[in-house]
Amino acid sequence: MFCFLTAFHGISQEEEPEVLPEYSKYKDLTTKTWINTYGNIRIGKRLFWDAQTHLRLEETEATPFVGQVAQVYNRHAIGYIHSKYFNVRLGGVLRLNFNTDEASTDRNLVPEWRIWHQYQFAQALESMMIYHRIRIEHRWTQGFAENSEYIFRNRWRYMFRMKIPLNNHKLKPKTLYVAPEAELIMQSGKAVVASPMEDLRLTTTLGYILTP
């Protein structure tokens, strides 16, 4: 089936036509180092505290490779375990953004606020586990310029992850496993005009199970 769509748009005499750039511009490649901690702490039979902290470094001309402090994350939430295969959580984020532009004369530090909620589904497949994670974030961000207004955006994140045992037939104590994952991050809001896709993250983790 073929579908043809035709759109007509009138421009008044006072309205200037939109001027598009001639070619795409890409940022220079930079090295970023993330040091993260993740903790799920039981506070009841079904309730738990999700405590996450991130220290993110970004290279500059004066500090190549390892770089300088760019962001400090504090992400926390209260989670509820519905079953072995489904859990949810709701919480807030305080992210401190540092100005890594060495030529900038604007402020050095601005806070970013978020509310986030997450829904994680798990399913067993043969000897491995598969996870589907949906995370929604409501963000209030601000530029480094003095008296900058806060901009509101939403982030829509979906992550697919697998846990595959390497030295056992199932995931149990004393098991080494590999966990490939892919996460697609989209964004929406009044300030999002031509970049709805914010990020695509492909990572692989090597893990070891110590206890149940």
Rank of each mutant, 00 (worst) to 15 (best):
C3Q: 13
A7V: 14
H9M: 12
H9E: 13
I11C: 10
E14R: 12
E15Q: 15
E18M: 15
S24E: 14
K25E: 15
D28I: 00
L29P: 10
L29Q: 14
T30D: 08
T31H: 12
T31W: 05
T31D: 11
K32C: 03
I35R: 09
I35L: 15
T37E: 07
N40A: 04
I41F: 15
G44V: 01
K45F: 07
R46H: 08
L47A: 10
F48Y: 14
D50A: 11
A51C: 11
Q52I: 12
L55S: 09
R56A: 00
L57M: 13
T60H: 07
T60N: 08
T60E: 04
T63S: 11
P64K: 04
V66Y: 13
V66Q: 03
G67N: 07
G67E: 05
A70P: 00
V72P: 00
R75I: 15
A77F: 09
V88E: 01
V88R: 02
R89A: 06
L90P: 00
G92C: 01
L96P: 00
L96F: 11
L96C: 06
F98S: 12
T100S: 06
E102T: 03
T105Y: 00
L109Y: 01
V110Q: 03
V110P: 00
V110R: 11
P111N: 02
R114Y: 03
I115L: 11
I115N: 04
W116M: 04
H117W: 05
A122H: 03
Q123N: 15
A124G: 13
A124C: 01
E126S: 12
S127F: 11
Y131E: 09
Y131N: 11
H132Y: 08
H132A: 08
I134Y: 13
R135A: 07
R135W: 06
I136V: 11
I136L: 15
E137Q: 03
H138W: 11
T141K: 03
G143T: 03
E146K: 10
E146D: 11
S148Y: 07
F152K: 04
R157P: 09
Y158V: 05
F160P: 02
M162A: 14
L166K: 14
N167E: 01
K172C: 08
Y177K: 06
A179W: 03
L184S: 07
L184C: 06
S188P: 08
S188E: 02
G189L: 10
G189D: 07
K190Q: 12
A191G: 05
V192I: 14
V192L: 07
V192D: 02
S195W: 01
S195Y: 08
L206A: 10
G207R: 09
G207V: 02
G207A: 05
I209R: 07
T211F: 11
P212Q: 06
P212H: 06
